[in-house]
Write a protein that binds this DNA or RNA. Sequence first.
DNA 1: AATGAATGAGACTTCATTCAT
DNA 2: AATGAATGAAGTCTCATTCAT
Lengths: 202, 202, 202, 202
Amino acid sequence: MDAAAADAASQSAGSAVGHGRGRRFDPDRRGRIIDAALDVIAEVGVAGASHRKIAARADVPLGSMTYHFADMDEVLRASFEKFADTIATRYEEWFLEPTTADEAHEAVVGLIHADLLASQRELVLTTELYTLAARKPEFRSLTSAWMARSRRALRRFFDEPTTHMLDALIEGLFIHAALDTTAPERARTVEAVRRIVTGRVP
Amino acid sequence: MDAAAADAASQSAGSAVGHGRGRRFDPDRRGRIIDAALDVIAEVGVAGASHRKIAARADVPLGSMTYHFADMDEVLRASFEKFADTIATRYEEWFLEPTTADEAHEAVVGLIHADLLASQRELVLTTELYTLAARKPEFRSLTSAWMARSRRALRRFFDEPTTHMLDALIEGLFIHAALDTTAPERARTVEAVRRIVTGRVP
Amino acid sequence: MDAAAADAASQSAGSAVGHGRGRRFDPDRRGRIIDAALDVIAEVGVAGASHRKIAARADVPLGSMTYHFADMDEVLRASFEKFADTIATRYEEWFLEPTTADEAHEAVVGLIHADLLASQRELVLTTELYTLAARKPEFRSLTSAWMARSRRALRRFFDEPTTHMLDALIEGLFIHAALDTTAPERARTVEAVRRIVTGRVP
Amino acid sequence: MDAAAADAASQSAGSAVGHGRGRRFDPDRRGRIIDAALDVIAEVGVAGASHRKIAARADVPLGSMTYHFADMDEVLRASFEKFADTIATRYEEWFLEPTTADEAHEAVVGLIHADLLASQRELVLTTELYTLAARKPEFRSLTSAWMARSRRALRRFFDEPTTHMLDALIEGLFIHAALDTTAPERARTVEAVRRIVTGRVP
DNA sequence: AATGAATGAGACTTCATTCAT
DNA sequence: AATGAATGAAGTCTCATTCAT
């Protein structure tokens, strides 16, 4: 279907405009390549992603890949930049709603048990990014900035140290929920968050 | 190297004649391939690992790879099995020393700030395994078993729910310490652990 | 199941006899290899057949292949020898029944429209043998002997020249029936045989 | 046809520069690969043919093979398409000359005893194609179309049923002549054709 | 007599990148 | 500015055969 669509497009473009060359104006081709890259990575991993697959998915000529991005690393960087931005934005929006610390507490629990856990795609992309960042320090600016935004969102409700602890706890609960074969218990999440949040004085 | 291995083999064979089914020349070739695979993965990632590279590193013929492992996935599975076992064992040993909850508390903090953080290799291998597990459920038995062993080690000192929370907190602190560009503060780790551990009653 | 069966067999042999070695008495191992080879060739062609596949199908150790047969060509030769013999025998039996030329005429038509056409396996093996014989003269002794037996069966009812013509006609009708996408018409077969058989004088 | 078109294209490209899409360096590379493939198949069979051998024979880089053909099956299909077309064309030309049924009768006999039999290469390629068609229905469109063209050539001289019978007889005589170790007798061929052709009334 | 272990060669295929246009 | 064609390198995997037992 992708191929057929491409054919149809180039043919109709050819007959209508009489230009011979494929699509002339494609203002967001770069953006489409990035979206396609994330799709491909979600499906086959950074390990399995290739110029060809991404180009095919984006319905873009293969030569276009190296035209827009010097090499694969640049594709990865741009893609994960967008991914981290998307998730961080969602995170921020998630914490726009609550107004009290108690509501924020609820929101944190919900974050782990409702939202993120649901999406296989985002779990995979997140761990792929972590792997990249673990290996290549230049990707840590992405993870670092992402964490900073997460904490800023929490900071509205909690003091600075609590924010850090809570952010780490969320991370750990999320990872374990995702990679453990036994389902997490919500009550435990509630309690853990409570301990971090209210444990201020011994 | 081949020569050395062969020598060793023939010697051990010599000492225990008629042992029965011992491999003829290279008794631990499988094991050496696994070690080599972990080295290669640590260096270039699952994405960059290949039969060729692993075989070269293990100093075995290329054909030996698919003789010992049906396909790449089997190599990965065996390698990460060993890796997870190694780390889990170390974790257990780490918690053999403390005898009181307070000492255990210290040990937890030390775990994050002293030991694991130090090793780039282990950070990388851990995230690679997480990525694999995120994508392929069959790898989750590894991560799941690993987590179970970690919790069992903690269980000597803490009740069941606290064990779970603490384990998740450790995970999160570890990940954030590794992927954040700003160094973690030890005091915050101490305090976070304290809140989880002593937060038993509101 | 093949694997399971093999396991079970070797285990029970081991525990009952305490011999350690795999099956001791396997008087018709050669024959089983040949049968397996024909199965494999029918499935994946001479092109796709390999020692490994045949050994696996025969439930025989790989090393057993080169023990019983010097090389692949010998396997092929023995296998097609058996195949040609099987088919020729069936052919002979087919012509044991008719007693008059008219009945033989019927039998010829039935041969093409009922029997051989039905079996995909035999069609495939036949063409594989023809291909082998076309390329390697040493396989022509097989095809030649097969044809001779076919003609001898027909010779009971027809004179020598007619026998040759009829045999060729049967071959051609069979091939065309098999490789044409439009089904053959029985009436035409009947008429063709009639012309060959009764066309003795102009 | 491919070859002709390509030639025309490269010539016109030379005479009318800027024609647009002419291939850059090797206008009929695809065609040359096909020819090489037929050579290789004729020599070592479909079983022995490989990308490497064909590429070497065509003097093109190995990577060029999968660039022009998605996989080996596509190479085979294109090659046998060309082969069947070549032979069918020759067949048609062979029957362009005779004008009477008697001359056609002569031509049929000559076909078997003079022309096709002579060429080991064509015998081999023919049986290889039959083998392919026997196994894979998608190759039967080739054999089927080939037969249809043969019959059309005969149809000029004989009625429809006779055409079918004659075509099958030719096939059978050809196969048997090729795969029998005893040479066929021309007189018998003459007589067989006569019986089919003149056998109209009993 | 028989076989499990082992391996180098080579199978098909995918790939990132170059190049001429 | 943009791209279709092309290719050498490397990918995974299968194979026939050898070898020590």
